[in-house]
């Protein structure tokens, strides 16, 4: 029975003390704690949102960078290809030009040789003719003096001519 009969004194002290503590905590402790908690929570939420936004921005930036890089790579390849093409063309052109020129030179040389040859031949022919005339002249002169002597002379002249020709 004493267990379930509330004592007057305890009720009084409990009501008084609990009310005072409730008042003190409600005035000085709970508002501070709850406000700080709320502030920190909003701050964390904001920070998370900011972080998410930053991540998104970085992703966008990365994608942009990649695009730029790809473009640059393509451009470089294009340039290289063009340069290679140009080089090949140049070499090809130079080769054909050289061939043509070489042919020209060879032909000119051939023409010159031919010309020189004809000149030399005609000179030889003239010389032979001159020699023949001379021989004929001397023959004619010696024939007139003696037969024997003439023959010797002719042979001597022919020998000279041969020597000269050689």
């Amino acid at each position: 029975m004493e267990l379930v009969s509330p004592g007057l004194g305890l009720i009084f002290w409990m009501t008084l003390s609990f009310a005072i503590v409730l008042f003190l905590l409600s005035k000085y402790a709970w508002p501070l704690i709850l406000n700080s908690l709320k502030e920190r929570e909003t701050e964390i939420a904001n920070s998370l949102e900011a972080a998410r936004q930053a991540r998104k921005d970085i992703q966008n930036l990365q994608a942009h960078n990649e695009d730029l890089l790809k473009e640059a790579r393509n451009e470089r390849e294009e340039l290289l290809r063009e340069a290679r093409q140009l080089k090949d063309d140049l070499i090809l052109k130079a080769k054909s030009q050289a061939e043509i020129e070489a042919k020209q030179i060879v032909e000119n040389a051939k023409a010159l040789i031919e010309q020189e040859k004809t000149v030399a031949l005609s000179q030889l022919k003239n010389q032979v003719a001159d020699l023949s005339i001379e021989i004929a002249e001397r023959l004619l002169k010696s024939e007139l003096s003696a037969d024997k002597k003439q023959k010797e002379l002719v042979e001597k002249l022919i020998g000279e001519a041969k020597h000269q020709l050689n």
Binding site: L3, V4, S5, P6, G7, L10, I11, M14, T15, F18
Partner: peptide, 10 residues
């Protein structure tokens, strides 16, 4: 104690 719980309940 019933007095304490009574005050809380009140």
């Amino acid at each position: 104690n019933i007095a304490v719980t009574m005050v809380l309940a009140l």
